[in-house]
Design a binder for these strands. Structure first.
Lengths: 360, 360
DNA sequence: ATTAGCACTCTCATTAAACGAGTGCTAACA
DNA sequence: TGTTAGCACTCGTTTAATGAGAGTGCTAAT
């Protein structure tokens, strides 16, 4: 039950027109604007068939046709062609990203900004998931007689720290020893692994002071590990959607905004998506069934994987958006590539990127 | 030109009614609901006078009266009485805050959540400004042969770090020396002070390796200081406003949401406000002229000052909201008080300041 | 000074009519 | 047999008119 060449042309025309104007498109305007060499009547017949096959819908009898999710899916899979970015957009992306190349999180945020500025849609970008991150070392640093800093450093330069206040004073020797001790225990293990394993039992009955210190530190250690696992999520251009005709109803707009108020939930959803450029359209989403969602992944040192994405109505310029995202993720991955060829990299909460000092 | 007792009663009644129902209130309903012992006609006369004095406005000839900003101001300054929180709200606040007492940023976020949940308005909370924070020490830690971590620790346990990648290898001696060196230079000085001072010149011509290392590190040091100055801003309940009748127009809603999209700008605005509970109503704000804004401050160790706030329409339960905020900030300040003389109970619980690495 | 009474104003909801875009069908045509 | 012109029909949208309702502002009586 394949579509004829002409049907594809008509479908494409309808999609193009509808994406542009957000209004049901009629046979007459198709015939006029797109030079298909057939009359409106013929187009009407084809449209009727396309509707029967589920590619078009009809808001009401005397309205034009609107593409269905199925039509967009066909378009994305088979019809659309890769777009070249305008020189202006390319320049903008290059400039903005290179300006902050050495500050990892800022670069990610800039990526989100760029995405929403260029697409005029809502966008997000998240730092890489660190499940696979392995611990490099653990360090305790004294602040004052009761306060110390717990610091966990990952192999890729990820750092997370917590300031903790002890209820009894500690000695420099004790914290040095505990630092070493913990580093030996956990070095090379992934965060996930450490978090899941039973930690309590390995409280060796070493020196008395050390054991008490360890008891104080352990809960914070676990929480700090959890912190380290959290990805940062940057959202931009949420208010762009107010300019779209599909969100002039306050209810739709509210629903949309509420999605993003639930940051943790949203983060989990996005992390669960496949790598690469992924498009989900309307009903294909389990929430946001009237939206389309496009995500793409960038790499850090070829290892860690972070996501960027765009959310908008199903009526969306899929060709442009996917092309932009592809360009952007390539650029990001390039930025985050290790300068040399050495194995490990640099990512996460701290700043990262290529040689920091090198580019002033 | 003082208001008579009766005029005050009527004004209060109008405010109460309008805040409740969001509809212009007429003389008849005032006479009915509030037992003032006078007829609608009398009330009408008084209303007319109140309008002339600028306390009421008239959407159109045949509509009831609406309180003006001036009326709300009078109400806030003279009329309203402190409200007692419900036991339920108190319990909620106590529970939620104590659950995370040892994680500073999370507590702040919880405060924002509580505020929006209880008031059903948009709220925010921000970590204390650290302009006055003084540097305790600076530390460089090795990750691998090209990567190291720069860490700045404030006297109050504030920590910020940056991962930096060097373009030439460093030696352990060099980074130890530089750490000490920098600590000596900057210890005890405020972040602001250090940032403003000319730093470059004090690159001593010490050992060759050290000088080169320092050259590499300095730019990151400054950026890290800037990071450290940034306050974290948590916003909650932005979508609550969609439920209010004043924001059923998409344009109003958009304007509202756009305010909060500009986080940096918003943060600056809020930091500039006075300490204590501050209410600004409608026109008293230079932006958001149709909103009221209530901010309050909490203390950390009696020193640092952070802000929380609520944003909503001028039609707002000022008495309740200010009471809630007072309760909440007292509770927060209490939470963040130094343990002082009593070591607190639980092992490991006792983190007073905690700071995520990464920018803002 | 207060109040009852009443005309007047303005908004909002309802209804009806005219409009127009676009379809679906039929019959003619190449 | 596929294509096209023609035309009746449908249905949402716009415009205008109407009436109800709420509330004021004024006047005159108390």
């Amino acid at each position: 039950m394949d579509l004829s060449e002409r049907q594809l042309q008509i479908l494409q025309a309808i999609i193009t027109d509808y994406v542009e104007n957000a209004e049901p498109v009629g046979s007459r305007s198709i015939a006029k604007k797109y030079d298909l060499g057939v009359s409106p009547a013929t187009i009407r017949n084809e449209m009727s068939d396309l509707e029967e096959m589920g590619y078009l819908t009809h808001p009401h009898t005397s309205a034009g046709r609107v593409p269905s999710d199925k039509a967009y899916r066909l378009y994305v899979n088979n019809l659309m062609k890769k777009k070249n970015l305008s020189a202006k957009d390319k320049r903008m992306i290059n400039n903005r990203l290179s300006a902050s190349r050495d500050e990892f999180d800022r670069t990610i945020r800039h990526a989100a900004e760029l995405l929403s500025e260029i697409t005029h849609l809502a966008s997000f970008a998240m730092t890489p998931a660190t499940n696979e991150e392995t611990i490099s070392f653990i360090r305790l640093l004294p602040v004052d007689e009761r306060t110390l800093i717990l610091m966990i450093v990952g192999e890729s330069g990820n750092v997370t720290n917590t300031t903790l206040r002890m209820n009894v004073p500690y000695t420099q020797e004790a914290i040095d020893l505990l630092s070493k001790n913990m580093t030996v225990s956990y070095k090379g293990r992934t965060l996930d692994d450490v978090l899941k394993s039973e930690i309590i039992h390995d409280v060796g009955s070493d020196i008395e002071a050390l054991s008490s210190l360890r008891t104080n530190v352990m809960p914070s250690f676990l929480r700090t590990l959890e912190d380290m696992l959290n990805v940062n999520l940057y959202m931009e251009g949420m208010t762009n959607i107010f300019n779209l005709p599909e969100y002039t109803s306050i209810d739709r707009a509210r629903d949309f905004m509420e999605l993003f108020a639930r940051k943790d939930w949203f983060t989990q959803k996005m992390l669960a998506r496949d790598n690469g450029v992924v498009v989900t359209i309307g009903d294909e989403n389990d929430t946001m069934k009237d939206c389309s969602l496009i995500t793409a992944t960038y790499h850090v040192d070829g290892k860690l994987v972070g996501k960027i994405g765009v959310i908008g109505p199903t009526r969306m310029k899929y060709d442009e958006v996917t092309s932009i995202m592809e360009y952007l993720t390539n650029n990001l991955s390039e930025s985050f590539r290790l300068p040399g060829e050495s194995g490990d990299g640099n990512a996460g909460d701290g700043n990262a990127g290529k040689d920091d000092a090198g580019d002033k």
